[in-house]
Design a protein around this nucleic acid. Structure first.
Lengths: 213, 213
DNA sequence: GGAGGCATGTAAACAGTTACATGATTAG
DNA sequence: CTAATCATGTAACTGTTTACATGCCTCC
């Protein structure tokens, strides 16, 4: 049940309408969560019912009226409780990796086509993320922003970009390996030695050279 | 609707029971999908009803009887259709990244504790994945395995391990940055110059040094 | 005697998506 | 005059999780 804590978290520093929140979900928040209005509105109503948030109506000119929500003390407490819970490892669900896993059922030509399509879209996504970062950096200049908020946001967004770049990298090296190896696409059994060599080819393509003991 | 294609995909090369399939979902498949028996059984029944798979009963001694499923021609066609569909970018849902994003609401001490806990579990997960890989490699020796199946499986699994290692790396460098910077945890506003320096600290920690144009 | 593996399912609750419904304002 | 933005919601459907139900066999 993370959606409610996403809403609570945003409203901790923010006073916002459902519509405002959706904008955030489509922007920054999209790197770790997503939702749509028809789920957000009822969830806000529920949270208000439980006394974790409160609302006030704001009439506007030239625009429809809106309902601004803010967090209550009990909401803040719930948020702290949730943040202090032992973290759970994310469970992966990735339809493209699933497709890739079963792609031996396509011709090599078709596999390469699918990878190419994905590569194009993934590149675009990364460009958008970097664009978004530039815009955000600029708006930091104007907005009053608290240090520790920015610290955690930077940490999360930079990780998100790294993740997407790793994915792109993988697509590209997989294409490179497959392009020059039609012989892999034969209905033959593999020997253990071949397997070792093959796996290493995928696995060795440099990883993050990082801190792991 | 990827679960059905996961089932279909496994049954393409396999003849298996619901229980067998669940084992795969807890093993290799877990890097890109997960499900539980109470979802798998009804979905198999549905697929059989639609004529995409067929079953036969096998009586066993000392063990309960089981229902083995195999794919039909129409099931194979559906699988190919799905594999040829334009790939969709995975939508991220990561409760831990969400927690991290809102962790400015905890004390620095508590933040570090949460990161540490996650680090420990993530390390364990990676060790398990590498163990699993060793076991699989060994079983390749015995099983007859088709080259192109192994190619795609290697590509997917190696990417999955890289992803998890990147995550671990991130946790570790984030801890390192926060441990020596209590001043970040003050209720102060940030200047643009500070922000630039801060973000770069997170962002620059080496990434995959890969192929991106 | 109890825990865990093998094996199949149903029922209820919860989470998430898609479609429908409304209506004013603004920019192209 | 058409599409997009702002703004809030409901209804129907689909997907997922958790709890319940059964029962034999093996290992400790």
């Amino acid at each position: 049940m993370s959606l409610r804590h996403g809403l609570l978290g945003l409203l901790t520093t923010w006073e916002a309408s459902g519509y405002d929140i959706k904008q955030e979900f489509d922007g920054f928040v999209s790197v770790f969560w997503h939702s749509n209005l028809s789920q957000i509105y009822p969830e806000l109503a529920k949270l208000e019912n439980e006394g974790l948030i409160e609302s006030r109506l704001v009439t506007q000119v030239g625009k429809p009226d809106k309902k601004l929500y803010q967090i209550t003390e009990s909401g803040k407490a719930e948020m702290i409780r949730w943040l202090s819970q032992p973290p759970t490892l994310p469970k992966r669900k990735d339809p493209f990796l699933m497709q890739a896993f079963f792609m031996d059922q396509l011709s090599l030509k078709d596999v390469l086509f699918q990878l190419q399509t994905f590569e194009r879209e993934q590149k675009e996504k990364i460009e958008q993320m970097e664009q978004f970062l530039d815009d955000t950096s600029a708006s930091i200049r104007e907005r009053q922003a608290i240090k520790k908020r920015i610290v955690m946001a930077s940490a999360v967004y930079s990780h998100a970009i790294h993740q997407e770049k790793l994915y792109l990298n993988w697509i590209q090296s997989t294409q490179a390996i497959l392009e020059n190896a039609e012989e892999l696409w034969e209905e033959e059994e593999i020997t253990y030695e071949e397997f070792e060599r093959l796996f290493l080819q995928f696995h060795k393509h440099k990883n993050d050279g990082g801190v792991m003991e």
